[in-house]
């Protein structure tokens, strides 16, 4: 059974349809890259899957681990194991990173009927995962993303992902704007978390990321639909030829 299966997904925002019948299947153990020009619907797909209320789904079906994803609240989707690394992580003044992640971890554990982590175990876990994305202890006591640099925000997303160990992680342009050091740290974190039981959907604008996170499949999203799917070599071709090449060849594909 597929971990994620999307069939004919149509979604709009404020009455404008962005996704025009999208199909995608992701199995455990796989990494899928979704590439596409600006405005093609990449971030909309991420938002719809995570349950952002601004979007309205008008048609189609999404199953996540055998359950109807679209029927769930955003928090239940997260508790079922879906994680979105935000393109623009939100600043939350007055809530410390540590308190935020502790609340998050324990809310998810509660949903799954597991005892909450006590303070000691939590600290231990936090230290271990913080190393993964090379973040310092002081970072954890700061307010969530407040005053963080772009790179720090993205590392924080990957840190949270490491803490929550989702079944499916959607990385929404996590690489955009990162310098090469931050990119190495972020992708290194992802690679260490890859295993046969989880999967990643990596949304990106740039082929560069895929040198670090090597995908099993590359999908090209144009105008709200996946128009081409291939292996990692497709990303290279896109980088060379640009998206116009795909658009020009849609009819033949």
């Amino acid at each position: 059974m597929a971990l994620l299966s999307i069939e004919n997904l149509k979604a709009n925002i404020n009455g404008t349809e962005i996704l025009h019948g999208l199909n995608l299947t992701v199995n455990a153990g796989e990494v899928h890259a979704i590439m596409g020009p600006n405005g093609s619907g990449k971030s909309t797909l991420a938002s719809v899957l995570a349950g952002k209320e601004d979007y309205e789904v008008t048609e189609g079906k999404v199953e996540f681990d055998g359950k109807d994803l679209l029927d769930m609240s955003p928090e239940d989707r997260a508790r079922e194991g879906l994680f979105l690394a935000f393109q623009y992580p939100v600043e939350i003044p007055g809530v410390s990173n540590a308190n935020f992640i502790k609340t998050s971890v324990n809310e998810i554990r509660k949903y799954r009927g597991i005892e909450p982590l006590d303070a000691m175990d939590f600290l231990q876990l936090m230290r271990e995962k913080a190393k993964l994305v090379e973040i310092e202890q002081s970072f954890l006591s700061r307010s969530v993303n407040e005053g963080f640099s772009g790179g720090e925000k993205k590392r924080n997303e990957i840190f949270q992902m490491a803490m929550l160990e989702p079944k499916l992680a959607i990385l929404d342009e996590t690489d955009s704007g990162l310098d090469i050091d931050a990119l190495r740290i972020v992708s290194g974190g992802v690679n260490k978390l890859r295993n046969p039981n989880n999967a990643f959907v990596v949304i990106t604008h740039y082929q560069r990321l895929l040198n670090y996170i090597v995908p099993d499949f590359v999908h090209v999203l144009v105008d709200g639909k996946i128009v081409k799917t291939g292996g990692k070599e497709l990303a290279l071709k896109l980088e060379e030829q640009g998206y116009d090449w795909v658009k020009d060849h849609i009819d033949e594909l």
């Binding site: 995570a50 997260a78 935000f86 809530v95 307010s143």
Partner: peptide, 29 residues
């Protein structure tokens, strides 16, 4: 703030709990 709410809920935090967390932070400043 809706964006903050969505961010917290996407991390598995119940709507009511997320609200309280944000309100607490708001007055706690």
């Amino acid at each position: 703030d809706k964006t903050s709410m969505f961010y917290l809920r996407q991390r598995g935090i119940e709507k009511k709990v997320a609200e309280r967390l944000l309100l607490f932070a708001f007055v706690n400043e």
